[in-house]
Write a protein that binds this DNA or RNA. Sequence first.
DNA 1: ATGAAAGCGCTAACAA
DNA 2: TTGTTAGCGCTTTCAT
Lengths: 332, 332
Amino acid sequence: MANGGYARPPTLADVAQLAGVAVSTVSRALSRPERVNEHTRIRVQSAARSLKYVPNASARALSSGRKGTIAVLVPDITNPFYFGIIRGTQHALKAAGYIQVLVDTEESGESELALLTKLQQSCDGAILAAPRLSDARIAELGKLIPIVTINRPQAGIGSVVIDTTQGVVQGVEHLVSLGHKRIVYVPGPATSWSSDRRWKAILKLTERLPFEAIRVPAFAPTVASGTAAADAVVNTGASACITFNDLLAIGMLQRFAERGIRVPRDLSILGCDDIFGSDFCSPPLTTLTAPIEQAGRVAVSILLEDPENRRPQNVLLPTHLTVRETTGPAGA
Amino acid sequence: MANGGYARPPTLADVAQLAGVAVSTVSRALSRPERVNEHTRIRVQSAARSLKYVPNASARALSSGRKGTIAVLVPDITNPFYFGIIRGTQHALKAAGYIQVLVDTEESGESELALLTKLQQSCDGAILAAPRLSDARIAELGKLIPIVTINRPQAGIGSVVIDTTQGVVQGVEHLVSLGHKRIVYVPGPATSWSSDRRWKAILKLTERLPFEAIRVPAFAPTVASGTAAADAVVNTGASACITFNDLLAIGMLQRFAERGIRVPRDLSILGCDDIFGSDFCSPPLTTLTAPIEQAGRVAVSILLEDPENRRPQNVLLPTHLTVRETTGPAGA
DNA sequence: ATGAAAGCGCTAACAA
DNA sequence: TTGTTAGCGCTTTCAT
C-alpha cells in the first residue's frame, strides 16, 4: 500500500456519513456539543466512537489557526535545572490540553532564533527558558508569536524570573556571619542574565556588609567545568565561594576532594538552584533553593492567560537559603 | 485585529506573486530545488527570503501526510534515567530534521494509550520508553502508527533494549566474589519488563553461583521509595542488595545513613543505570552502567530507517559493571 | 521546466 | 438546530 500498511484513519466525513448528518454538524457535535441537539449529539458521538475517529490536528490547525502546541526552548536538556522547568511546563500544558514541543537550543542564541523562527507557524506560543538571545531579537520574535521568558525579563514580554536577589542576601549574610571576609563568585555563561544579576546582588551587599567580593572568569554551568572553577577559586585565596549554579558546585566538590581540600573546613561553598542531587552529594550542598518547577508552571499560565500579550505579566519568584553541609566557619 | 496583533505570515502565494511564478513552482523551488531551473530557483529563494517566508507545517502535513514530528513517551520526566533517553532522542531527532513531542505518561498504561491515540494523527511515529501497556495494546497501536519501544521488546515492533543481563552477571559475580551469600533484589514497578528481567537473571545465576537470591516487594522507582526499600532490605538479613535502579539505591543510601548502617561495611548496594548523581552520591554508587543516551539515539534511528516497520529491528545494548564504593566484602 | 487545479480534513461563516 | 460551502496553505498530479 501507499502508506506502508497503515490504514487511512476515519475523517469527519466518514463519521458524518455513518451518523447521517453533515460534516459541519459532526464538527460541532464533537468540539462544541452544546451547540447541537442532544439527540444528534449522541448519534454523532457514538458514530465517532465506533469508527475510532481521532481529529486530525493539522487540518484543524490549518482551518482554525489554533495549533494546540506550545514550544518550550531550553539551553540544555542535560541540565537538571531545566528538567525542573520542563517538568513544570509539561504538567501545566497537559492540564490545559496543550502538547509540549521540547527544543534544546544548545546554549546558543543563533539556535534559539533559527528554531523559533521555524516553529512560529506550528505553535500557539513559546516559552523561552533563560534565552541567550539579545533583547532586540526577543522583542522581534515576540511580535511573531506569543512568548514568555524565564529568567530573562524584558519590557513588553511576559516573563517569570526566579529572583535570587533575596536568596543571595540570605546567603551572603550566612557566609559573613560565619566570619568569611573574602567571598568569590563563580559566574555562569557570559550571556546569562541570571548570572549577571547574582553578581550585582553580591557586589551591592559589599556596601553594607564587611566582606570583599571578587570573581573568577566565567564557566560553563556544568559539573565538568567545576574542576577548572575549583582551581580558580583556590587561587583567589578566598575562604568562601558562591557559584552560579549547583552543577558547578558539585563539580567543584569533586575537585576539592581530589585535591584534599576539605569542605567546609578549608573552604565554604554556596550553590544556587537546589537541583536534583544537591541534597545527596558529598557533603550535601548549602544552596539557594529555587522554585524551579513552579517557574515552568507559572510561565505556562502567563502564556495561556494572556496569549496576545496585551498586558504582559512579569512574575517574580523568590528563592531562599537552604543550609546543608558545605558552609562553615571561616579559617576553622 | 482579529489575531491579536500578530501579522498574517506570508504564504507560498505571496512568494509566488513576488517572484512572478506559480505557487507550485515556489513549492518545488523550496522543497526540491533540483527540480527547478537554477534561474527561477534563485528568484524564488530570494523572494522567500525577503518576505521571511516560513512554511506552514500544518498545511504541509495536511497535504503531504508528513508531519515532521515524532512523539516520545516517557513514564516520568522527573526520572533522570528518562532524561538520558530524552537527550538521546532529542539529539537524533533534531539531526534528522524532526521535532520532538515530549509526553509524560505518569507511569500509567491508560495514559499511554490515551495520549498516543490522540497523537497518532499528529506524529509520524512514536518512541515508547519503558511502556506500561500490555503487549496486545502495543501491537494495536503499532498498527496505527510506527512505533519503537525502549526496554520492552515485542514481536513485530522495533525495539531497543538495554540488556542488563550481562551487567547483572558481572554484578552478582562481583558480589559473590566479595563473599556475599545472600543477595536481595529490590524490584521496580510490577509492570516493568526490565525489572522482571533483572530478577530472572539473578535467579538464573543461583544455578551456578553459590548464593541465595531473595527479593522484597515492588517499589516505586524513586529516591523517596528508597526509605521503605532500605528498611525492607535490612529485615531480610541479606549482606548485599541489587536495586532496580539507582534512584532507589540513592534513597536507600540516605536511609542507611540515618539508621547508622554503614555502606559497604554493613551492607553492599549495587544500583542499576548509572544515572546523573550516581557518581557523586555518598558513597559513590557501584552500579550497572547503561548506555541510556545511546538507547534514545538508536530508537530514533530504528524508527526513521524503517518507518513502515517492514522488518522491525531489535537492538540489544549491553550494560557493564562500574565498581565504585558501595560494594565491599561480606561480613567485614 | 512550469502552470493550473484538485484536493488533504477541518472550521466557520452563511443559509435554510 | 442543521446543512452548504468556501476556504486555510500546501503538495501533487496532470497538462502544457
